[in-house]
Design a protein around this nucleic acid. Structure first.
Lengths: 200, 200
DNA sequence: GTCTATATTGTGATAGAC
DNA sequence: GTCTATCACAATATAGAC
């Protein structure tokens, strides 16, 4: 907390502000206040708002992408992989509730960056796709388009967070506790749902 | 095309610009250019940017919400309902590719508005939830939390559009045709997937 | 490196002629 | 109703003292 240098102090403050407000609604003044320093220092260290944002976004991706790598890559059994991904992802969001909206907004602003970053981190979807194909050949799961299945798992896991306001507002009486329990229940629900859908 | 009044001309131009750029990146000047008129006229008709946006957003919701109402409400069989929703929703997006991102961005900006609008349009999730419960009691489908199932269907349908850039970029060689075919295949895929997951 | 003060720019909004 | 010209303000960015 105490002996931190100014650059990382700024980076952390900026991360907090950018993630909760998004690029354009986040103000340099607010970031400076959050860091307890002056506006001019932000420019001294990062030259421009855009540059600062880039730095923050890279940092965030470095937290997420390795997780995706585990999901896509490691040679653990497919059904375990689903559970692992759902569990890991949901726990990550717990810590940073605004992450999904943040990533998706910026994803739509500049898709290339995220894709490039995933490639440079060695994330390769072909590993999990061929794994799925093999499971089909072995007769362990139903015949299914592996890409569709992959998207299904991501959709089931990520979507509730993207749509949190409407899910909470329409289905859960706008109650945060209920939403929490809903998500907790979802950890096992998704695995069961997917496995039911694909088991022969 | 020709004998249209200025107000609806503005509304249509604004819709186009707001949907493709979002509230803050959309500029009044750009909307004026799109409409072939002057900036000042926008204020004459709609007083402020916010008011203009509200008008646009209401219009957009009026297109979407009745569709949701069919899904939530009508007393057609549940399995048919899934197919109907997937088909209808995907076709709607085809016509307006930027709709999902637009709605979700604004949803996170002001959840109350969308919820209130759905209520005022008579959308009531309880109808479909009790329908699911009844199907379970009858032994037609597996025991499952109806709310989880409802979210699953929405997630499977909507998520690919929200994540389009990454889906296209990582899985489909950045090829729009492939994405199109992927979505087309998805229409039947989702129904099959869900029905497999819940059938006893 | 850190600050205060100021320049610059973009954009929503208004005044007022026609 | 529609336009031109202008205001007002917010927010990024820079100059320059310390």
């Amino acid at each position: 907390m105490s002996e931190i240098n100014t650059e990382t102090l700024i980076l952390n403050s900026a991360k907090k502000v950018f993630i909760t407000h998004g690029l354009e609604k986040a103000k340099m003044q607010q970031i400076a206040d959050e860091a307890g320093i002056n506006k001019a220092l932000l420019h001294y260290y990062f030259r421009s708002k855009d540059k600062l944002f880039e730095a923050v976004f890279s940092d965030v991706l470095k937290e997420i992408v390795p997780m995706m790598k585990n999901f896509f890559g490691d040679n653990i059994p497919f059904t375990h992989k689903i559970e692992l991904f759902v569990e890991t992802y949901i726990n990550l969001i717990r810590k940073n509730p605004f992450l999904p909206e943040f990533v998706f907004t910026e994803l739509n602003r500049n898709p290339e960056r995220l894709i490039q970053m995933m490639v440079s981190f060695g994330v390769n979807p072909n590993v999990i796709l061929t794994q799925i194909e093999k499971e089909i050949e072995l007769g362990n799961i139903k015949k299914i388009n592996p890409k569709q299945l992959l998207i299904n798992i991501l959709a089931l896991t990520i979507f509730p967070f993207l749509a949190k306001p409407i899910v909470k507002g329409i289905l859960l009486n706008n109650d945060d506790d209920q939403f929490c329990r809903f998500i907790e229940e979802r950890k096992v629900h998704i695995s069961e749902f997917v496995i039911n859908a694909i088991s022969v």
